[in-house]
Write a protein that binds this DNA or RNA. Structure first.
Lengths: 154, 154
DNA sequence: TATAAATACTTTAGTATTAAAATAAAAGCT
DNA sequence: AGCTTTTATTTTAATACTAAAGTATTTATA
């Protein structure tokens, strides 16, 4: 029965570790590049896109955010010339997003700094720790919400 | 040198696990109690407060958020009668926050559901996994930002 | 081929958050 | 007692996010 308590403690530890490291990454990005971690995430996703870029929907799925969020987070990146938004010529509804060369340059510098930052934060973890961590995290099963209102409760 | 890559992968796994479980907890809280995870966090902190409650500053520290945030997150809880805000009578600047009995009742139900939810999400982790996870997470050292502008750079 | 339905995205309204400015009260000089 | 500084909290302006409503555009169908 103490499994509940142990699980809860582990979860709180997970949340705390992730929050504080994330906050530190964000602070660094903001002061060194004037960009938030969310904007960095967009650049990182687009860096792996094909020539044509990603559609808004694809980008949202990769970033695990709503499409409305994608529209908004990309806006300042477009304004600042790091991302280019193009309308598909075969379907007027579709928008493609891709990195500009300026965007790629900025991303490369941010990514390099981020690798160092994270590597430093995890320096006390052995190579085995890193593997173990990933394995354990992989065992977490996020509960699917089952209480979705059934329209036809026949 | 591939430590950097391994560390980065572990970090991304950590972020993903924590984000998705947090989102699922939040979704449950909202649909079952109409409260966000942030508001639950306030109730949880106040549940452990002494009779007098916590001051705004103490609460902020515990929650690891700014005082401005505390003012705002508590506002709707006060409006809805789950939290009581009292001015200290010996120091006009200080505000104390504590749970009302209604607040405590709501918290108890939320906490119970949360324990089940988390326990379920971590059901595949052995008792040893839970310990190992906490140990590994404890090895993470969040980098202190050293670039603070020194006013007297003599 | 006109209209209905579906799709792709953007906009809007609201919550959560921070940093910085504003407010108010207490404490420390002189 | 009257300034000045410090302390405690709130308010304001801005970013990030979601859900739901709105806008086009395309596809299906009668």
């Amino acid at each position: 029965m103490s499994q509940e308590a142990d699980a809860l403690r582990a979860w709180l530890g997970l949340l705390k570790a992730s929050n504080s490291l994330k906050k530190s990454v964000d602070t660094n990005f903001r002061s060194d590049f004037g960009l938030s971690i969310s904007r960095f995430d967009v650049l990182a996703a687009l860096d792996r896109a094909p020539e044509t870029g990603f559609r808004a929907g694809e980008l949202s799925q990769l970033l695990m955010v709503t499409e409305g969020n994608t529209t908004q987070v990309t806006a300042p990146l477009i304004r600042d010339g790091l991302v280019k938004r193009t309308k598909a010529d075969d379907d007027g509804r579709v928008a493609y997003f891709r990195l500009t060369s300026k965007g790629r340059k900025v991303f490369d510098r941010m990514a390099a700094q981020n690798r160092r930052h994270i590597s430093n934060a995890l320096a006390d973890l052995s190579s085995e720790d890193l593997t173990t961590l990933r394995n354990i995290l992989g065992k977490i099963r996020v509960p699917i919400r089952d209480s979705v209102v059934r329209k036809d409760a026949a």
